[in-house]
Amino acid sequence: MHYELLLFDLDDTLFDFNETEKHALGNTFNSFGLPNGLEQYRDTYRAISSVIWDDLEQGRITLEELKVERFRRLFQEHELELDAHRFGELYIENLGHESHLIEGVEEMFASLENYRLAILTNGFTLAQYARIAGSPLRNTFEAIIASEQTGFKKPQPEIFEYTFDTLGITDRSKVLMIGDSLTSDIQGGINAGIDTCWFNPEGKENRTSITPTYEIRSWKEFSFGRKMVNN
């Protein structure tokens, strides 16, 4: 492989966000006196959150608005008299305490000593920094770039331009974007004119017109010692 810089998404690419969310959300409900809140409201929350994150990608809402709006809708749906702003702030804080790596991630990075490595995430800056700092990946990345600090988000090309400028990248053919989201990571990489690798552990069918350069089902397949499968 001819790449020099590997850009990684974070959630559901390197970190198991299902576990992260479960613990952070449960702890937040506990703090608000609802020890069964996770079991009672998680399904509704996840449905709302999915819509809200799509709104973020499409530019219909800001990250700061997302932080509160998802809980405002949840509490409205279940007629809960909770402060959505305070809940959202504590939830982000609790996210920062959760670092659950996906299987094979540590071993994969051990084989990438000769590459420049960076994170490109749409998540909240403080939470993402804290999660990486609390994980075995704490000294792995040259840069951690979050949408909150740039004013742009994947799939906008501007966040990639910011990244290229920050890291001094002039040859885009030497950059690979790796992530689990077709609409965010892969479309973003395409918009920026770089190759992409879709991390698809569940073997989801690609029903979009978005075509990644590569597709892998596990981190064992992400090897520069042998050819990955092109799409």
Results as ranks from 00 to 15, higher is better:
Leu5Met: 10
Asp12Lys: 01
Lys204Cys: 09
Leu5Glu: 08
Arg86Val: 00
Leu63Cys: 01
Tyr41Ile: 00
Ser173Lys: 14
Thr140Lys: 01
Pro155Val: 14
Ser135His: 04
Asn230Asp: 04
His2Ser: 12
Ile119Cys: 02
His23Met: 15
Cys197Gly: 07
Gln128Gly: 05
Thr44Cys: 11
Pro136Asn: 01
Thr211Ala: 03
Leu101Arg: 11
Asn94Ser: 06
Arg207Tyr: 08
Gln187Leu: 15
Lys220Arg: 15
Asn27Ser: 05
Gln128Ser: 03
His23Arg: 15
Lys154Ile: 15
Arg217Cys: 09
Leu120Gly: 05
Ala192Cys: 07
Ile119Val: 12
Ser50Gln: 03
Ala133Thr: 10
Phe15Ile: 14
Phe160Glu: 08
Ile159Ser: 07
Val51His: 07
Trp53Ile: 14
Glu161Cys: 02
Phe222Pro: 02
Asn114Leu: 05
Phe8Tyr: 06
Asp165Ala: 10
Thr20His: 12
Trp219Thr: 08
Lys174Ile: 01
Asp165Ile: 03
Ser223Ile: 09
Phe29His: 10
Gly96Tyr: 12
Glu4Met: 10
Gly26Asn: 12
Asp180Gly: 07
Thr150Ile: 06
His2Ile: 09
Leu176Tyr: 13
Glu113Asn: 08
Val68Ser: 04
Thr121Tyr: 07
Tyr214Lys: 12
Ala192Gln: 04
Glu98Met: 11
Thr62Asp: 14
Glu148Asn: 11
Glu142Leu: 11
His78Ser: 00
Leu120Gln: 08
Lys174Glu: 06
Asn191Thr: 10
Leu90Glu: 12
Pro155Asn: 12
Glu89His: 07
Asp9Leu: 00
Leu95Val: 01
Thr62His: 14
Gln156Phe: 00
Asp180Trp: 03
Glu65Pro: 11
His2Trp: 02
Gly96Leu: 13
Thr13His: 00
Lys67Glu: 07
Ser111Ile: 00
Ser99Gln: 14
Phe199Gln: 06
Phe164Ser: 02
Phe152Tyr: 15
Glu64Gln: 10
